[in-house]
Design a protein around this nucleic acid. Structure first.
Lengths: 286, 286
DNA sequence: CCAAAAGTGTTTTGCATACACCCATGA
DNA sequence: TCATGGGTGTATGCAAAACACTTTTGG
């Protein structure tokens, strides 16, 4: 295995979807700048062109729900105070969905993930002004003209919902350090990623009421209170408990299971599960 | 002016947005196959690579409202029974919106158009199986390996609404013959364009109720009855006249003008205009 | 028995629908 | 004055919202 291929996974999207997550060699080997820079340079000058569709990038807004708050996964760029969204490129034989899915799996280690394309950004901001190239030049490296990042990129944007607090793989900690950030405390971001994150949240808020995506942020079995907290966090409002319960139940897509005994001194809530029978899918379409 | 540049406009997107529509030379000059084939071949082998972002296409679903029916603009491909959506490519210095807008103006001659990106299609259907290449080979031409259409393409899709029955420019009648088609009588289409057209209609139906886009299909001043017909055509239902009027007026985004005397033997309807004050925009956001 | 949280019932309000009625217009 | 289509008023029904009440649990 060519040593650069790990770097490819770190920087970008694997070209196939069946790379076993657990069996990957440790990225620690490439954590020093001295080792990284020539690998990155080689990637930008050679491998990237061979593996990926030119001009095309994927950015993902990955949401999860922790401590009653909606979080988004950001990557802090190379020891700067600037953040960006996890992203990657599209393998020459990959569909867009496959490429986005691969990025998700690479970053989170999870395989069951809700994923939805919501926007394609075609502005020219990054063209000739890439952060990674600038950083490399600061460090004395100079990838040749015509390298991968000197293209103009169009970015297809996805948002994703995680149903467990994902452990976040640090596949390339020196270049991109992952961090879960409160959705209402977004830091300064590179390129147009702040705008993309904003659009992702808008879309999530919208889909929540029209496609019932909320349960994707919870484990398979959940209480009504937990589901309500998701709605409140995403819409940043307070909801009436009784009305919320009736509304959810009236959709006919939740299945009531046995009670959950929490050990707390109050009535135990029922557990619910999303009902996957065809009838439920119908109810959501309208 | 290089003769191929007209062809470029015919096949694809101009790279700038200020080509004067009226001053274009007639395309009649290039209407025979003998003249067209070498120009197309040269375009595919040379000019396209220089002008456009690789791997990226734009497809547009252009809607208008004629005789109380919703129509979509399709292009019949080179004397076959197959149709496709008007499309083009993205100039190296164009944003996606600019490229889509240029295609619209090129095909319709109009400059004020509602335009909304709704989907990016990344399947591999067209890869290695392009209709134009196949047709050229049937005709004995053989663009060299590595020509523009041998790439894998990702297509950014827009839908557009025209507020007048556009005259449809026949810039390349031999290759693509334009035709307004009833939305409920879609013919067989190339690539995944049938799917894209379907998604465009779904999106239009959805936006109609959430972003009040309907008035973009009408001239600036219109009667309530005309607006209602738009809604009925797009949703394929009958609506109550009284309820419709109250709902529209309650949105607070219509401005009532003077009456319109039609010459018909009945009460004359008021004319309305879309209200562009900021308050209206707020009303639409929710 | 109490506090806390969950579940359910009841009232009210708002909105969409349906339908009725009146108005303006030109033949 | 009549037919036609446009504008407005009114009754009805459904569903969401607000609030009250009951139930369950562990201390």
């Amino acid at each position: 295995m060519h040593p650069g291929s790990l770097l490819v996974q770190g920087l970008a999207t694997p070209t196939t979807m069946d790379i076993p997550t657990a069996a990957q060699p440790s990225a620690e080997l490439y954590q020093t700048q001295e080792q990284l820079i020539p690998l990155i340079t080689s990637f930008l000058e050679n491998e990237a062109h061979q593996l990926f569709v030119p001009s095309l990038a994927i950015d993902t807004a990955i949401f999860s729900f922790q401590n009653d708050k909606l979080k988004i996964l950001l990557l802090r760029f190379w020891n700067t105070p600037y953040y960006c969204l996890p992203g990657g490129f599209v393998g020459k034989q990959q569909t867009l969905d496959e490429a986005a899915y691969a990025i998700l799996r690479e970053r989170t280690g999870l395989t069951t993930i809700y994923l939805d394309q919501f926007y394609t950004s075609g502005n020219l901001e990054r063209f000739g002004n890439d952060a990674l190239l600038t950083k490399l030049r600061e460090l004395g490296a100079a990838p040749r003209p015509g390298n991968w990042l000197e293209q103009r990129f169009v970015s297809v944007c996805y948002y994703a919902l995680l149903d467990e607090v994902a452990f976040c793989q640090t596949i390339d900690p020196l270049v991109f350090e992952p961090e879960w950030v409160d959705i209402d405390k977004l830091p300064e971001m590179l390129y147009d990623h702040a705008e993309i994150a904003g659009k992702a949240l808008e879309r999530l808020q919208f889909d929540l009421n029209h496609k019932f995506v909320g349960f994707n942020l919870l484990p398979e079995e959940f209480t009504m209170g937990e589901l309500q907290k998701i709605y409140e966090a995403i819409h940043q409002t307070q909801l009436d408990r009784a009305s919320f319960q009736r509304k959810m139940l009236s959709l006919g897509i939740l299945e009531r299971l046995e009670k959950k005994y929490t050990g707390k001194a109050h009535k135990s809530p029922y557990l619910y599960r999303f009902n996957k029978v065809p009838a439920a899918a119908e109810a959501l379409a309208g």
